[in-house]
């Protein structure tokens, strides 16, 4: 897991430095507001926490926050696969890989549209995350098989960790079940992409490799939104905050 993370960090930071810096700042804002809550009488701060920016969209808390968060992640994945199926690697790919990536495109666009519909059916428009977040995939070479598959694996593994970590924040059982219906499909995706890459290198265990599933416990990852948003920051252009999520 360590190795994979290091690789991913390098990979993301290659061309996305600006984005990373932005997201690091928003990560700082999250940590800062936590400090205010826990020690508001303490005036030993060396750096004051930044004021919340009224122009920056905040995902909100509870079910709303988790749904907005999932909507952001599904927008990210859908945008990625849209670029994949419009790229030259995909158009010339072997039949099996082409079909898998087209399936993933369809699934992720469907997830994105589901969250859009669910949010708009249940919440006022002004608290729903905007539908056209902007992403920066300039670090990905859509004509290059390795670049596309490596990024797909990163996004799917991240999606699994994100849903696994967000489950505990969900308040309504029906939303939890739907998140469960989606996360297992993300895990199926992650395993399929890993399987393709693993077969390339004769690593037949990569679908659920020791780098992603803990050997001792047999558990997949689970991360809080702040960790995920920070990790995906290299791809995210449109600023948003998650001040009410852990």
């Amino acid at each position: 897991m360590k190795n994979k993370n290091v690789k991913v960090e390098n990979f993301v930071s290659k061309k996305g430095n600006k984005r990373r810096q932005f997201l690091k700042m928003s990560g700082l804002a999250i940590a800062g507001s936590g400090l205010i809550l826990s020690c508001s009488d303490d005036d030993d701060f060396t750096e004051p926490a930044p004021e919340p920016d009224p122009d920056t969209f905040d995902l909100g808390g509870g079910d709303l926050g988790v749904l907005n968060y999932a909507y952001a992640l599904e927008q990210l994945e859908a945008d990625f696969y849209t670029k994949v199926v419009n790229g030259s690697y995909w158009s010339g790919a072997a039949m099996e890989e082409k079909q898998i990536l087209e399936d993933l495109y369809n699934h992720e666009v469907n997830h994105r549209e589901f969250f859009k519909a669910a949010l708009n059916a249940n919440f006022d428009a002004e608290v729903v995350l905007p539908e056209s977040l902007e992403f920066d995939f300039s670090s990905v070479d859509f004509s290059d098989r390795d670049s596309v598959l490596e990024t797909a694996q990163l996004l799917e593994d991240t999606g699994v960790k994100a849903y696994n970590g967000a489950g505990k924040i969900i308040e309504t059982a029906a939303y939890l079940v739907i998140a469960g219906k989606i996360v297992s499909v993300e895990a199926r995706h992650a395993a399929a992409i890993r399987s393709i890459r693993g077969n390339d290198m004769n690593d037949f265990k990569l679908f659920a490799g020791d780098d992603i599933v803990d050997e001792a416990t047999g558990l997949d990852g689970a991360e809080d939104p702040s960790v995920i948003i920070n990790a995906a920051g290299g791809f995210i252009v449109t600023p948003f905050t998650a001040n009410e999520l852990p």
Partner: peptide, 21 residues
């Protein structure tokens, strides 16, 4: 418990994806 159950659940999904393939 929920988080741990979810962490097992997604591993089972990885397994089945590979067995199916």
């Amino acid at each position: 418990v929920l988080t741990t159950a979810l962490q097992i659940h997604s591993v089972e999904a990885r397994h089945t994806s590979e067995i199916r393939r």
